[in-house]
Design a protein around this nucleic acid. Structure first.
Lengths: 199, 199
DNA sequence: CCTACCGATCGGTAGG
DNA sequence: CCTACCGATCGGTAGG
């Protein structure tokens, strides 16, 4: 039951979700307001009762569905006992979600390519608490780590996840000219952990 | 002197280059044929003497300017004496180019988001020789490496470069709410090499 | 290679 | 929240 939402709130959410699905599939400029209206089951004009214009929809989608917004807080909440299992947990949750929704990261890239990263500052502002939490837990378990700067640990961790996503989309395709040995997320974890851990 | 090119070839190249500049700045759907014509200094109709339609222009741009096409062969040509200096050289060349042209990678992302990676198979086919060369040189210097599979070495190397590019665009901005410690490419190399090398 | 044009579709709005 | 409409712009083409 979503009966806690008013009719207007439900329509608002339907527009947002429809826009998200279409944007990650077709890009921003490649998606029309008419498509969004149809997918959200209302008339074109009805959208403008909920959003001032197309870009306001995109901004709302970014601040709701951007992978950094969705993933960072979840990663930070981890109750792992040490850094190694922490990374393994993060990678496992991550790959499971990516394998089901490979287009999840398109929002990241669309924002960079079609808006030149215009919304990144506000995105970072909203995600700053999670970054601070990560910073602290890395400082706490720093005995385990070779790397001094928590930010470098975070950046290379994000890099690990992104490289899994992107090289998979490059190399791991059924229509490849030459079959490539299956991409194993454990290999990525191994390289990263050996690169970061003290032992 | 580009006098080795005929007039028609020069126009063809001008359209290609104009399209590249506009695509990486505005995306595919966000760029109009009229903009390409104007930037290439000819009338809209003139474009169709050189390309059948808009998507054919994009395909030509991808197969000419895609970072995998431009970077992989150059990396492979390296004459570095061991894997460590090889990676350092690659990273140095890479970051130098990225710092001057931060939008270079947009073509990669645009192809994935606006075409769902439709051109990846042909891209891989064209880049296969370079991949094979890389494969062989990794096999040759495998004594230095912890990692068995050359493809994992390549994927994580590409991941290293991509993570540098993407976390920089996330964290290293003049308009950030909180200043972040400067992003050092040497740190990325360090984590990667320690993760991959035997010693 | 340009001029002039085609039908289609775009984001957005008025008025109810 | 919908219907009907606006001017602008889109990719592409005919004809010279």
């Amino acid at each position: 039951m979503e009966s806690t939402l008013t009719k207007g709130e439900r329509t608002h959410a339907a527009v947002l979700e429809a826009a998200y699905r279409l944007f990650v599939q077709q890009g921003y400029a490649g998606t029309s307001m008419r498509q969004i209206a149809q997918e959200a089951d209302l008339a074109l004009g009805g959208i403008y009762n909920h959003f001032a214009n197309k870009e306001e929809i995109f901004k709302a989608v970014v601040f709701t569905y951007h992978p950094v917004v969705l993933a960072l807080p979840r990663i930070v909440e981890s109750t792992a006992v040490n850094f190694e299992t922490f990374v393994h947990d993060a990678m496992a949750a991550f790959t499971a979600e990516f394998d089901q929704h490979p287009e999840l990261f398109n929002l990241f890239f669309i924002e960079l390519t079609e808006f030149n990263g215009r919304h990144v500052p506000e995105l970072m502002q909203r995600v700053m608490p999670a970054v601070a939490t990560f910073h602290q837990s890395v400082m706490a378990s720093q005995g385990d780590l070779r790397i001094q700067s928590p930010m470098v640990v975070l950046q290379t961790l994000i890099g690990l996840l992104l490289s899994y996503v992107l090289t998979r989309r490059l190399f791991d395709r059924s229509d490849m000219p030459v079959p490539i040995a299956g991409i194993n997320s454990a290999d990525f974890c191994d390289v990263y952990l050996h690169g970061v851990l003290a032992t």
